[in-house]
């Protein structure tokens, strides 16, 4: 490695690897991303199927969405993933919502909706 480079490529002063911004704004975005990629990697679906579902979701949001609802790319990503998994019967219609409501009713100490440290606990690990 040269010593005259303005910045070391691999050293502590290396240029940003993560695009100069957080790749995921919230932990759940990373989980939603990781689920789609690992399902595809395991052969659960062709990427084109997921991509087509994502395009439909984004187009639908852009065609009309509830007043005041902010754009969230990974919300569309998650919805597309649910579409693919519901269409092939991997999860039943309404099943994700039912489980989410059950999770919402956990005692306050277990509800990490308001926490920002998801990584250390919960979110399905250990099942």
């Amino acid at each position: 490695m040269t010593t005259t480079a303005p910045l070391a490529i691999d050293g502590p002063a290396a240029p940003p690897r993560s695009n100069g911004e957080l790749v995921f704004a919230e932990p759940w975005e990373g989980r939603a991303f990781g689920m789609a990629v690992s399902l595809h990697d395991a052969g659960a679906f062709a990427w084109e199927r997921f991509q087509a579902a994502l395009i439909r979701r984004i187009a639908a949001w852009e065609a009309g969405h509830p007043e005041g609802e902010c754009w969230s790319y990974y919300t569309q990503w998650l919805a597309a993933l649910e579409d693919v998994l519901t269409a092939d019967g991997t999860v039943a219609e309404g099943e994700v919502a039912a489980r989410a409501h059950a999770l919402a009713e956990r005692p306050a100490g277990y509800d990490h909706e308001d926490h920002d440290d998801h990584a250390g606990h919960g979110h399905g690990h250990g099942h």
Partner: peptide, 15 residues
């Protein structure tokens, strides 16, 4: 439910 809860729910079901 929020996307955060839906994500957690889906991950549980798939796991």
């Amino acid at each position: 439910p929020s996307p955060s809860l839906r994500t957690e729910a889906l991950e549980q079901l798939l796991t």
